[in-house]
Amino acid sequence: MQETTMDGDGKAQKNIELATFYVGEAVCVMNILQIQEINKIMQLTPVPQAPEYVMGVLNLRGKIVTILDLAKKLGLGDTAIDDNSRNIIVNTHDGSAGVLVSRISDVVAAETSSMEKPPTNMSGIQGSFFAGVFKTENTLIGVLDLDKVMGLEE
């Protein structure tokens, strides 16, 4: 899994590994170190009265974990639960929570230096949830700012 990338001159770049996943049709990434686990336990218990982006609660080996619908949180509609959908359980500063995504994809390595600030015209709800944008060879991928996504609605 570890893909060490060395620069031509042998100087080690600051590399991070990113997990790619789909939210609806959109591709997002997050730092792999923020992820505790990825699972497909879909036995969610709905919580009436919870904010609408809360899908429900999940029993994760005896721990109760709140699962958020990432698409809803990002304002991209609902996530339909199917065979490809996964829960990404993340470590936040106060316990675990998870996000439901439509599909997970590869882990890619990238250099921090290639991350750029989100374009200023990417405004609104979506803009505030991204920490930056990565350029890959043929596409741009948004890096989720996990603290913002997991944060409480002001």
Partner: peptide, 19 residues
């Protein structure tokens, strides 16, 4: 009794959850 996560603190109707 197990506590509910941070996102659900606003739901006053629950004292917690159980498995």
């Amino acid at each position: 009794i197990k506590p509910l996560g941070r996102h659900l603190q606003g739901c006053r109707g629950y004292a917690g959850a159980t498995i």
